[in-house]
Design a protein around this nucleic acid. Structure first.
Lengths: 113, 113
DNA sequence: AATATATATTCCTATATGGGAATATGTCAA
DNA sequence: TTGACATATTCCCATATAGGAATATATATT
């Protein structure tokens, strides 16, 4: 079996850096495809395809106005990723604390030399 | 160009569901490869390869003890994902609020009928 | 040294990818 | 209707998968 499709879920869709760039850009306000192309300096076909992936997994919403397509980030679709990473929050805080403690202990032992 | 390597960063490594399973399993305490194989019911070669990917991007740490390799999740490597998703937290809260408001407004207008 | 155990690596294959160029589709304007 | 503009789709290709089976490596035990 090959790698899971980029369209299989938000985790896979978001793995591509340019797609994260797009999501960042569309976070605060909707934008037409042309704006994304100009601002992010990507090929139009590339942007269109990335938007297609993002749309399929619900990470963006589209609205048509004349010949323009206005895309915006659907933040809710990012929430599952946030929840999953949050699971580990206490762990890294704990790990950082231990690193700090060790550093301080080492400091102290060197002072007594 | 093809898709970015799974080993290129945490985002790509974590896109694979089985690797998230492994990270979850190794979150609280270190485990030998055999334990992962038995508990997650995966092929040994598959587990070994997934661990290799996770190790390359720093998502797990290894310790050798005799012929056993003990792996544990390095939560800190998940932090960047958490930070990125956190960027959108205010947005989905705002979006949810608007959904709620609309629902209440609709409710009210139907009451006046 | 020989054997058993634990893990890693190699070999195989089907498959999806992202980029760029070209083309198709859709919509507005005259 | 014709042409201009905006976006989507198609075609091309090199590349990296994930899984399973088989094999290799490393360590312990006897």
């Amino acid at each position: 079996m090959a790698r899971a499709a980029t369209t299989s879920d938000a985790f896979n869709a978001v793995a591509e850096p340019r797609r994260r760039d797009i999501l960042n850009y569309l976070a605060l306000e909707e934008r037409a495809v042309g704006d994304i192309v100009a601002t992010l300096r990507m090929e139009q076909s590339s942007v269109s395809k990335h938007l297609g992936v993002l749309r399929r997994v619900g990470l963006v919403r589209v609205r048509r106005h004349g010949r323009h397509m206005f895309y915006r980030t659907n933040a809710e679709a990012i929430r599952p990723l946030h929840e999953w990473t949050k699971t580990f929050e206490r762990l890294w805080q704990h790990q950082l604390l231990r690193v700090k403690e060790r550093a301080e202990a080492k400091q102290k032992s060197s002072e007594t030399l």
